[in-house]
Design a protein around this nucleic acid. Structure first.
Length: 848
RNA sequence: GGGCGGUUAGCUCAGUUGGGAGAGCACUUCGUUUACACCGAAGAGGUCGCCGGUUCGAGCCCGGCACCGCCCACCA
């Protein structure tokens, strides 16, 4: 170590991540370690495709957890020597991106309509070039070891080719079709949107009861919150088993205001308990009515346009007004005619557009769909056969549940930003193909595909598919694991499995790990609009990326969890502890020794053994996707066993230049840095650069520690374990007796062992002779010493005796229970007998 | 309405096939011993949501109840 580095080490008493993290990251990039060669086979290699963040996005806490998990897996496997690729890319995010750019245009006093489609699309691309890398840079701050040289985008030329091929193939196989269907229409965006983009809100409307006269006389009273849609009514429905209406089914009612006869039909959907038990049917403007209409072959009349205003065939007096105005006018007319039979407030949940905030208008429109039922079958089979394993079980059940009765997927979106449908029309002709058709007069469909359509191809389209001969595809597909949150299992995970099986005949990944959703500390959803968001970049600025990574991993669980600042601080404290413990070792250890475990002294064998157990538990936890235990076990080993006990035990030897102590410590440090690296890459890499004789160029490619069974030493663990227990008992007694920290106590023990460690750690001096015993603690007699409060000591002893009497009583009770002795396993009973004997012996020693 | 999960220390969460309840933070006391006060030592704190059952023995298994989340489908 040169003098300057040594000085830095001596002076820097706190781990200060700020500048160091950026420098360390730069070194990783320059080393090329995140950019693997496209060699080897998928079975040998390890790969993960990142869930592509929206190109408009900013890193939020969900990304931070998702990225921390994947990076831990990627780093672990890279250190294990596997050729490892973390596929990076962004999603064009049709609606979100278009909205951002439109907002920008609005502030410049223009609009997309004014620019026209071509110039608008150019503007979005410009925006993407300028701002699209923001979130990628933010992943770097987290330390994510993605391959930044192979970044992909869902609108890359090659990617578009994959999307078109899939669309055309599915069309030719008969899965994709065009139809009139009811969609969620967003009048603000003027586009159909998917169910995912909805948000249900509680709304209080008025429930109106309206009389529909019957042709034969009498009337049917229906209940509705949307009287204006009666202008498109084509039937009235009742429950088939409803006695009240048995006679009128098959008759006609006269639709008020329009004076048009409509049939009275019977349908199971109608709930006879609700309202009057009669339901007006508007197939053109209500999803349920649409289904009923299709079942009964009813006409689908549309009176609400794409802008949310009424259109013909609504009567002229309503055309052009908003639905709210139309409702008011319709109610007035009904009231005048004496047909309004009741109105009362009614609270129900209503879908709103997540994007524009407007109330969804269910509309019938001509859209492209994909039938999912057949595609879902093999995807269910693959999971049931274990070719794709979904962890945890709850997520597996959710996947299977979502695959039952999977509805057709609305593919088309009335947007400009995205993959334009590979569909052309000329008159009544329709052409579907990857290239435009020959001949004049063809016009391409103006719609674009749902963003999830391209996302569904992510794991293979990013590797070059449909060309299955690219080096990347051959080396890295199928990928190993997909890491995501619960909310997009059906929307994304299931669709990737379906498309992959259909087009590559392989599963896209072998494992799916579904992690927690991080909620705000108060249990609400973390969101910008609620003001409950916590910015991961703020946490990184304040505590460092390692701290955030540790905290998030320690927090995560099989259920959703509340964000815990304390866990991030625990991570920060651990990074600092690592830095300082390493300073001690690096400053004091001899650098002329060969690092390695030494077996001459029991404490050296002990730490080597305990390290093996930490290696085992941390490795197994990560392999089982149990990141919380991995993080906390690492913490426990480093803080408690390595620092609190081993370092304190070997300090004198270290200062004396003991060779074994230096060798063991340097070895243990290198091992534990490697063990911690997948979770806390920055601080471990930085410390690694100070090691006198590192075995690799950088920690990021240092071999991950492997369990060495030969170093597990039961007897050393027993011996040091006892010394620790005795030390703690003595310290406890000292504190209780009010003995000053520095006061050395005279003591005597009859087990013949020197207890050198205990002597130093508990500040007692063992001798063969000496004064009168004043107390006995765990087999050690403490002798009279100046400055001890005899009453406190007596109280302490009595407290212990009392406890022992209780234990003895409990043990005796248990062992005299015939049921226990007869039915409990033998080892449980034996353990109980041993405990009882030990308690009796100690009680005896303390005078009964 | 259907499905999944939760209820354990003041807070956030662990708790292996049933065999004496744990961590971090917060709290109390002591401590500036040549890595670290983002530190060290010690301590206090829990009828494991409620009721019943199975068992020699239940935080864990079974039944019921009460709250709280999430997902899907939504009665106009």
């Amino acid at each position: 170590m040169d003098a300057e580095r040594r000085q830095t080490l001596e002076e820097t008493t706190r781990w200060d991540p700020g500048a160091i993290e950026q420098r360390v990251f730069q070194r990783w990039i320059e080393g090329g370690w995140f950019h693997p060669p496209a060699e080897g086979t998928p079975a040998q290699n390890y790969s993960i495709a990142i869930p592509p963040p929206n190109v408009t996005g900013a890193l939020h806490m969900g990304h931070a957890l998702n990225g921390s998990i994947q990076d831990a897996l990627i780093r672990l496997n890279r250190m294990r020597g596997r050729n490892t690729l973390w596929i990076l890319g962004t999603d064009h995010a049709g609606i979100a991106t278009q909205a951002v750019v439109e907002k920008q245009l609005a502030s410049q006093g223009t609009s997309r309509e004014e620019l026209g489609r071509e110039r608008f699309t150019e503007r979005v691309w410009e925006w993407k070039e300028q701002y699209g890398s923001t979130i990628v840079e933010q992943y770097q701050r987290l330390g994510a070891s993605c391959d930044y040289e192979r970044e992909r985008f869902t609108l890359d030329e090659d990617y578009v080719r994959a999307v078109y091929k899939v669309f055309v193939d599915l069309y030719e196989k008969g899965y994709i079709y065009r139809d009139n269907y009811m969609v969620n229409w967003d009048p603000g965006l003027r586009s159909a949107i998917s169910d995912l983009e909805l948000e249900n809100r509680e709304v209080t409307d008025t429930l109106y009861e309206i009389a529909y006269p019957l042709e034969s006389g009498g009337e049917l009273v229906v209940a509705t919150v949307r009287p204006e849609t009666m202008l498109a009514d084509t039937a009235v429905a009742v429950d088939p088993n409803d006695e009240r209406y048995r006679d009128v089914v098959g008759e006609h009612a006269i639709l008020p205001l329009l004076e048009r006869p409509i049939p009275v039909i019977a349908d199971e959907h109608v709930d006879p308990e609700f309202g009057t038990g009669a339901l007006k049917i508007t197939p053109g403007h209500d999803p349920n009515d649409f289904e009923i209409g299709r079942r009964h072959g009813l006409e689908e009349i549309v009176v609400i346009g794409e802008d949310g205003r009424l259109i013909p065939p609504a009567p002229d007096r309503f055309v052009g007004v908003t639905t709210a105005e139309a409702q008011k006018a319709v109610v007035e007319e009904l009231r005048d005619k004496g047909l309004l039979r009741g109105e009362e407030p009614y609270t129900h949940s209503v879908p709103f557009s997540h994007r524009s905030g407007e109330r969804i208008e269910p509309l019938i429109s001509l859209q492209w769909f994909c039938r999912m039922y057949e595609l879902a079958k093999p995807a269910v089979k693959a999971v049931k056969e274990g070719r794709v394993r979904i962890t945890p079980d709850g997520a597996l059940r959710q996947y299977l549940h979502g695959m039952e009765n999977i509805p057709p997927w609305t593919l088309s979106r009335q947007l400009w930003w995205g993959h334009r449908l590979p569909v052309w029309y000329r008159g009544d002709e329709t052409y579907v193909g990857e290239e435009p058709p020959g001949g004049d007069g063809w016009e391409q469909d103006p719609d674009v595909l749902d963003t999830w359509f391209s996302s569904a191809l992510w794991p293979f389209a990013t590797l070059g598919w449909p060309d299955t001969n690219t080096p990347e595809f051959k080396a890295f597909f199928p990928t190993d694991v997909l890491v995501t949150a619960r909310d997009i299992i059906s929307l994304w995970v299931a669709r990737m499995i379906m498309t992959s099986l259909e087009f590559t005949e392989q599963v896209p990944f072998e494992d799916v790990y579904v992690h927690s959703v991080i909620q705000a500390p108060d249990g609400r959803r973390m969101s910008k609009s609620l003001g409950t968001g916590i910015d991961p970049l703020d946490e990184i600025d304040e505590h460092g990326a390692d701290a955030l990574r540790f905290g998030l991993l320690a927090m995560t669980s099989t259920q959703d969890v509340r964000f815990s600042q304390a866990r991030v601080q625990q991570g920060r404290d651990l990074a600092n502890k690592m830095w300082n413990a390493s300073r001690l070792v690096l400053m004091e250890a001899r650098d002329d020794v060969e690092p390695g475990p030494r077996s001459g002294r029991v404490e050296d064998r002990w730490i080597a053994s305990r390290l093996q157990r930490a290696v085992r538990s941390v490795s197994e936890s990560i392999e089982e996707y149990d990141f919380s235990h991995a993080a906390l076990d690492l913490y426990e080993f480093f803080w408690s066993e390595l620092c609190d006990w081993y370092l304190e035990i070997v300090k004198p030897r270290l200062y004396d230049g003991d060779e074994d102590a230096s060798a063991t410590l340097l070895w243990a440090l290198e091992q534990v840095l490697a063990l911690a690296h997948p979770i806390m890459p920055f601080v471990t890499e930085e410390i690694y650069s100070y090691l006198p004789s590192p075995s690799a160029e950088a920690l990021v490619i240092h071999p991950f520690p492997e369990l060495d069974e030969g170093l597990i030493d039961q007897s050393a663990e027993g011996e040091i374990g006892q010394a620790i227990a005795l030390t703690r008992a003595l310290r406890r007694w000292r504190q209780l007796a009010g003995i000053p920290v520095k006061q050395v106590l005279a003591a005597r023990t009859d087990d013949g062992r020197p207890h050198e460690l205990v002597s130093r750690l508990a500040k007692v001096e063992f001798s063969e002779d000496g004064g009168e015993p004043i107390a006995s603690v765990a087999g050690v007699e403490l002798l009279e010493t100046e400055g001890i409060d005899p009453e406190a000591v007596a109280a302490r002893i009595e407290e212990r005796r009392e406890k022992l009497r209780g234990e003895v009583k409990r043990g005796e009770g248990k062992l005299s229970n015939e049921g226990f002795v007869a039915k409990a396993p033998a080892d449980v009973v034996d353990a109980e007998r041993e405990k009882l004997a030990a308690y009796r012996a100690e009680l005896e020693e303390l005078g009964g």
